[in-house]
Simulated scan of single mutants.
Amino acid sequence: MEIIGRLTRDAVVAKASAERQVVNFSIAVNDSYRPKNSTEIKRIVTYIDCSYWLSTGVAQYLKKGTAVELFGRIGLNVYIGNDSQAHGSLTFHTSNIKIIAFVNDSAETEKNTDADAQKSRKEPDGLPF
């Protein structure tokens, strides 16, 4: 199965057991449709929890807003809650991650450039003119 979306938060590496680690992250998948007999387009967002077990090195590249294409399978987690009721959740178990677009850090770069410019204006340069 293949899904494409953007990360909703930075990936987190969690320890599953003494020797196993997993990269957990969540993506948002945007979709749209037009209801029958309507001209209005409805937009929906589906949030999907994902896990990647093969390597934790990829976590450093999985930042909020990064567009990814994922290949894998859907897993079902079922458990009995504190309220004695059965609960379930879906997780996309990723076997291959393809990064489509990285997050643009231009806002952070602009902040640093502005701060450097202000700093240089305040400091005397030692020139007599």
Rank of each mutant, 00 (worst) to 15 (best):
G65M: 05
S32M: 06
R43N: 13
I100K: 11
V13S: 09
G126H: 04
K63L: 15
V78P: 01
I44C: 05
V22P: 02
E110W: 01
R9D: 05
F25Y: 10
Q85D: 15
L62K: 04
V78H: 00
I4E: 14
A16M: 14
S106A: 08
G88E: 11
I48W: 01
A16S: 14
A67D: 06
T66V: 15
I3H: 04
F25I: 04
K119M: 10
Y47N: 09
D105I: 06
V23I: 12
N112C: 01
R73H: 14
F71R: 11
L54N: 13
Q60L: 09
A18V: 12
P128V: 13
T8V: 07
P128N: 12
T46I: 14
D116L: 04
S51K: 13
T91E: 09
L90V: 13
V29D: 00
A107Q: 07
C50R: 11
V12E: 15
A67S: 13
I100G: 06
I80A: 09
E19D: 15
V58N: 02
N24F: 03
N30G: 04
V12S: 06
N104W: 08
T113M: 10
G5W: 07
V78A: 11
L76R: 09
P35H: 03
N104F: 07
A59E: 10
Y79T: 12
L7H: 01
Q85F: 00
S26M: 08
K36P: 02
G126V: 06
N24S: 10
R9H: 10
I4T: 15
A14W: 07
D105S: 03
G81C: 09
V23P: 04
I41V: 15
G57H: 14
T8L: 10
Y33G: 05
Q118N: 11
F129D: 06
V13P: 09
R34Q: 10
D31M: 05
A117D: 04
V68M: 08
K111R: 04
Y79E: 04
T113S: 06
A59G: 06
S89A: 14
E19F: 03
E69M: 08
F25H: 07
E19R: 10
Y79L: 11
T94D: 03
W53Q: 02
A107T: 10
A59D: 02
V103P: 00
L7R: 02
I97V: 14
K98P: 01
N77G: 08
N82G: 15
F92L: 03
A107M: 04
F25V: 02
E40A: 15
D31E: 13
T56V: 14
G65V: 10
H93Q: 12
V58T: 08
F102C: 09
K64Y: 05
R73F: 00
L62R: 05
V103K: 14
A86C: 12
E110V: 03
Q21R: 11
V13G: 08
S17Y: 00
D116P: 00
R6G: 00
S55W: 10
R43G: 01
F129V: 13
S26D: 11
V23C: 03
I44A: 12
L7P: 01
S17F: 00
Q85G: 12
P124R: 11
Q118Y: 01
G88I: 03
S32W: 10
F129M: 08
G75L: 01
E69H: 09
D83L: 07
